[in-house]
Design a protein around this nucleic acid. Structure first.
Lengths: 138, 138
DNA sequence: GGTGATTTGGTACTTTAGTATGATTACCAA
DNA sequence: TTGGTAATCATACTAAAGTACCAAATCACC
């Protein structure tokens, strides 16, 4: 907030100086026009950079693009994907079974299938791969 | 924050208008100069936004703020932290033992200590917690 | 209405992970 | 020099994860 005020204040001062300069140099010569144009170009260039940085910083937290096409491409089914998400949360097979209201045997089947489809040896590696494929939220 | 930017932007625009008007009074009839300046300003503004977006996109992958203070705060030792990083890569205890040139027993000891310090029941949960604490690269 | 994929579940088994405990070495600071 | 901490390793055990194989119910699709 402080920074914003400072930067914009500086810009206003700069513009005022330009404004004054243009008044004085108008009579004496016509080189000032080019200089004024150049300075305005630079100033707005900087303004563009600054404002863009601000807006991008705000968007950073809400960006979570999950590649569902990749999920399909890997042949991961709906249920398997649900299990994958629970795995990435750090839950055990038993805990996943309880949250999805199915038996642990079924979870084991899903996990085994997931490991094959993600080409992973362990569930921790599956998490890593899923993150690389951008198919789990992070 | 948004308000501040808007207010100052409006002020700058107003000043520019004054600047344009003042010129208008001196050189009456010649509108083209003002238009040229305005266009240049807008063009460089857009260029600023564009270039900034490009540089930020490149930096996106290299931005990884790891909270080492948190690591200390949790009482995680140097070696334990190394093990934690390997765990998050999806390696097994045996594989970690091979990469760090120590026995699997030692890895198990480190892992057990890590689970206590991170308040986790499993290594997958430890990964999750470590991510929340921002102590591992992602 | 049959066909293929998904989901579910089980048994039996092997492997990996994690706990508990104890012990040795090394290093660093008081 | 001693006392604390980190790092190392081992044994023995329990728990969880993962594999292999099978089988039945469901569901979508033609």
């Amino acid at each position: 907030m402080k920074k914003t005020i400072f930067v914009f204040s500086a810009l206003i001062v700069a513009l005022l100086v330009l404004f004054q300069l243009s008044k004085y140099t108008y009579v004496s010569g016509d080189i000032s026009i080019e200089i004024v144009i150049a300075i305005i170009a630079i100033v707005f260039f900087i303004i563009g950079i600054y404002i863009n940085k601000r807006t991008l910083r705000k968007k950073k937290h809400s960006s979570n693009p999950i590649d569902f096409d990749k999920v399909e491409q890997l042949g991961i089914s709906k249920r398997e994907y649900e299990v994958l998400v629970q795995i990435s949360k750090g839950l055990s097979n038993k805990e996943i079974a309880d949250t999805l209201f199915i038996s642990e045997s079924t979870i084991k089947t899903h996990v085994s299938n997931l490991l094959v489809k993600l080409d992973a040896k362990r569930r921790t590696q599956a998490i890593q791969k899923a993150k690389e494929f951008q198919i789990i939220p992070f």
